[in-house]
Amino acid sequence: MMNTQTKTDSLNLGRIVLAHGGGGQLTDELIQNLILPRLGNSTLDPLDDAAILNGNLAMTIDSYVVEPWKFPGGDIGRLAVCGTVNDLAVSGAKPLGIALSLILTEGFGRVDLQTVLDSIQTAAGEAGIDIVTGDTKVVSGEGLYITTAGVGLIDPNRKLGVTNVKPGDKILINGPIGEHGLTVMLAREMPEVQSVLKTDAAPLNHLIEKLMAAVPGVCFMRDATRSGLAGVATDLAKDSGLHVVLDEAGIPVDSAVQHAADMLGLDPLEVANEGKVVVVVRPDAADAALAQMREHPLGQQASIVGEVTGQADGICELATLIGGRRIVQKPYGEQLPRIC
């Protein structure tokens, strides 16, 4: 008996799966096939971290559904502020204000809510920004969800974006990768494991503003959140049409992160960060950018992690520690641990 398995039987089925929200290839597929055809316009289509309105206004929005809502080094409140501030900052914008939407579930503790609100205020204080408007709803379910939107001001004379990237440009990151994702994974999946890991969630706007002011050669920035450094580097290659080579020897990875990643069968390159910015600079500005980033407390372990080369193939490669080469691809979606 023959049975034809059609496209609708696979993941293009009429339903959303968790991996559609993973920020990987499957999220891209959903945006390209479902969202953009219906909602697309010239401001939305570039799918940058923030939309640019009126030439000088940046606007961004993000929802936070992290589980557990509290994890070593932070909680959903801190994340919600840092994520939105960072989306504005990497777009070259100075954040002006944040809108906060809380979706609480029936039974959520008042004390826990106070904790979340306090960490929202702490993170906003670090970023030097206020929560300026908000909304609160309650639904049945578990935990809480937060959406934050932010607006910021852009210097219209400062051009940032993937179209500015040229062969020879250097790629920098402000510190070790993989901390946030692995902290949450451990807290969720292996709460009994004792680890020194904590989230790196931090507002990067001060670091970025100082870098932008001191180094004119900065041409592209993106925060390495879901899909990690691999996600940013592969997008950079794909969107610029150029070849990106990451240098494994230059990529800072703490040993606690490496151990946790090995245990869960994950590659730190693909794991989410919440306080890391990938910066592309002109080759002659790389040393100055590195020095400037290292002056900031959030950039002390900044490092040059790769470069853009002239091959027009849109491919990202990793030069490995032992001198090998391999392709880097954007993760598919939900990160799955190994079973052997």
Binding site: Q5, K7, S10, L11, N12, Q25, L26, E29, T234, K238, G265, D313, G314, I315, R326, I327, Q329, Y332, L336, P337, R338, I339, C340
Partner: peptide, 26 residues
């Protein structure tokens, strides 16, 4: 990996996924 047909493309330890991910230029 998005539309896998066989298990070697699905598994994070599968040979097809390894080839697709690390060897095959997108």
């Amino acid at each position: 990996p998005i539309n896998p047909i066989g298990p070697c493309m699905v598994s994070a330890e599968g040979t097809c996924q390894a080839w697709f991910k690390y060897k095959r230029p997108p």
